Simulated assay, not measured.
Amino acid sequence: MRTLGVEEEFLLLDALTGMNRPVAEQVAGGLAEPMRARSRREFRPSMLEMVTGVCTGAEELAQQLRDGRRAAAQAARAAGVLLVPVGATPVAEQERAPSDDPRFLAIESHYGPIARDPSLCGCHIHVGVDDPATAVAVCTRLRADLPLLQALACNSPLWLGADTGYASWRGVQLRRWQAVGPWPHVTTPAEAGQTIAALVAAGEMMDESMVLWWARPSRTFPTVEVRVADVCPDAADTVVLAALTRAMVDTAVDTDAPPVSDVLLNAAHGNAARSGMRGTLLDPRTGRAYPAWDLVGELVERVTPALKRHEDLDTVTTGLQRIQRVGTGADRQRRLLAQGLLIPKLLASMAL
């Protein structure tokens, strides 16, 4: 059984204004062990990341996610802020990196104003693989399916205190960063390394650690890390995405995929960020648009053998039915806006 692990990033917001509050150090310091060891310092001081351990079953993952969210929310309240699972900063304009961290300051110096864009919160899913060559092959084979995963996870329609018209403003804002986007079509670790070295030489990456593609072999763990999703509004959504991603990775280990046009692939990601699961999505394999939920059905059918191997079929099918019924995180936020909720109240209602 392939292992699973998840990293979730959360915003720390003022309860009255919805503005970002740079109190991550205080919130992390308020976590008791072992939860403090499961928190991570992020580039933005208004963000807190919580990570799970290595899991095998969906229920084990769900319990760790619930525990991490509960502990982080309690620590945030003790610090006088709200812990909110949204993918992009809804109100603030710019943020600075912590001034005492040389690594973060180097990033800010290299990338300039882009590095002062406000906080973005993702859900990063790790799936165990056997070796670096397999990780590279899987990242390449996943390319065409990740726009659909992005659409399912859209949870950031707000920016500067208004609805952007996009389901994932995080997906739009991240495109300002060099080397964020689809993993390149490479076939071996050596070829991947050559591509990364060329991007570093061109200044597109500060160094080889700044590989921020939607999927990548982890530098730390024997995993493929899928980074395309916004942070989910609740842990149940995260579990569905994680189990589906594991099945996608497991299927990709043994199933080759033909090359996909980079132009169509970028268009598919743009379509996903704009539309979410409303209407149609571009299939980069065919260059045609299809109803979004039809593409979900095709994907689930294709990875059903892997879902069964990991005993995740019921978790994924029932979870996807629930998301289709209640909507993505972006859909849920827009329903609250339509009810007349002001954005600070909307954010407070979403807080954990």
Results as ranks from 00 to 15, higher is better:
residue 154 C to L: 01
residue 304 T to Y: 09
residue 293 W to C: 06
residue 334 R to A: 03
residue 148 L to G: 09
residue 112 G to E: 03
residue 122 G to H: 10
residue 337 L to Q: 04
residue 285 R to K: 07
residue 265 L to N: 06
residue 228 V to I: 13
residue 100 D to Y: 10
residue 125 I to P: 00
residue 158 L to N: 00
residue 57 G to S: 14
residue 301 E to W: 11
residue 76 A to G: 00
residue 110 H to V: 06
residue 182 P to V: 06
residue 235 A to Y: 05
residue 258 P to D: 08
residue 58 A to H: 11
residue 259 P to R: 07
residue 109 S to R: 14
residue 64 Q to N: 01
residue 297 G to V: 05
residue 215 A to E: 00
residue 29 G to H: 03
residue 174 L to R: 09
residue 332 R to A: 03
residue 251 T to E: 14
residue 278 R to I: 00
residue 234 D to R: 12
residue 303 V to P: 06
residue 110 H to G: 04
residue 88 A to S: 15
residue 291 P to T: 11
residue 30 G to D: 01
residue 13 L to W: 02
residue 14 D to I: 03
residue 205 M to R: 00
residue 124 H to D: 11
residue 138 V to K: 05
residue 208 E to R: 07
residue 186 V to M: 08
residue 291 P to R: 08
residue 299 L to Q: 12
residue 162 A to F: 09
residue 148 L to I: 10
residue 126 H to Q: 09
residue 299 L to N: 03
residue 282 L to R: 04
residue 329 G to W: 05
residue 100 D to R: 13
residue 288 R to N: 13
residue 99 S to Y: 11
residue 234 D to I: 02
residue 99 S to A: 14
residue 120 L to C: 14
residue 35 M to V: 02
residue 21 R to P: 01
residue 226 V to A: 08
residue 300 V to H: 02
residue 87 G to Y: 04
residue 349 S to A: 10
residue 159 W to D: 00
residue 203 G to D: 10
residue 72 A to S: 10
residue 77 R to M: 03
residue 211 V to Y: 00
residue 224 V to L: 08
residue 52 T to F: 11
residue 227 R to A: 07
residue 120 L to F: 11
residue 38 R to Y: 13
residue 142 L to V: 13
residue 71 A to Y: 04
residue 251 T to G: 11
residue 3 T to L: 14
residue 130 D to S: 14
residue 194 Q to C: 13
residue 208 E to L: 05
residue 345 K to Y: 04
residue 132 P to M: 15
residue 50 M to V: 15
residue 246 R to A: 06
residue 108 E to C: 06
residue 213 W to N: 06
residue 273 A to G: 11
residue 173 Q to G: 11
residue 67 D to N: 14
residue 212 L to S: 02
residue 317 T to C: 13
residue 219 R to N: 02
residue 117 D to N: 12
residue 26 Q to E: 15
residue 125 I to H: 01
residue 29 G to K: 03
residue 56 T to A: 12
residue 53 G to C: 08
residue 131 D to Y: 02
